[in-house]
Design a protein around this nucleic acid. Structure first.
Lengths: 132, 132
DNA sequence: TCGTGATTTCATCACTTAATGAAATAGCAG
DNA sequence: CTGCTATTTCATTAAGTGATGAAATCACGA
């Protein structure tokens, strides 16, 4: 009994069923604001973002991440802790190995969104303003 | 050779025309990764995120922001500088007043997305895993 | 030009955060 | 239990970041 209540049922096709316009017109709930900032903060690090990008393909165990990134175990583990504390990644244990993956498609979407945005120069914006 | 290749011309209706799945399957371009992290870093601050949320409704001049947030001019200005350096906000000068607004709908989407995500507890995830 | 309101820049200081080696913990095979 | 591999936790240290007052700009009207 949460969202999709009074809405005219936006069907199940949209990648994200949240009512963005509504959220933005609502008063900024301090708690949600803080959590959202926490999400961004955790993603606001090149190394961590790279990890998220790696995890976007699917489950990867810590050792693989260490190998793939060429970092120390403790470093990778710390980063994973941060990501997990913000609910960005999910953890699964299999024997002596621990597998990590993105928590949900929402995260995948955020990462993809930002990377796509960062990849393109500008979709024809800032027409004639002083820039830089 | 950029995006929107096989897409049937997404016209001006979709909120985001990027091919997310593609971006995630691509090798992590260091440069894009860094810029994306920069975006998140700039948004990863409660105060700045609150400002973005405010700006999501439309143009606001610095003085209004100062009044609305109850902060000092220099503080607000510094935050705006950070947001602008990451291309998150746009600036328009009108006489002695300066108006700020979100750079594009992409930013609006990111903010709304994160706030929506942060507002909901969990879409039925981490069923029986150790949490915390 | 001078004065004033609006906004930005600068230097500084307090606070936060990331990387890291060492030590601890967990799971498993002997 | 012992040893071994996989992973996390801890404490420390180095670097990064935000808020802020003072000074500098900017635009405008007298």
């Amino acid at each position: 009994m949460k969202s999709r209540s009074g809405k005219p049922a936006p069907d199940a096709k949209a990648p994200c069923a949240h009512d963005h316009a509504l959220v933005l017109s609502l008063p900024p709930d301090p708690d949600a604001l803080e959590r959202a900032a926490g999400l961004f903060r955790a993603m606001g690090d090149t190394a961590r973002l790279r990890m998220l990008h790696l995890l976007a393909r699917g489950e990867v165990c810590v050792g693989e991440l260490v190998a793939a990134l060429g970092e120390k175990f403790s470093t990778v583990s710390q980063r994973l802790r941060v990501l997990r504390s913000e609910g960005l990644v999910r953890r699964r244990r299999d024997g002596s190995h621990v597998y990590y993956a993105l928590a949900d498609d929402h995260v995948k979407d955020l990462v993809a969104n930002a990377l796509a945005h960062a990849s393109e120069p500008e979709p024809a914006n800032t027409p004639t303003e002083d820039d830089e």
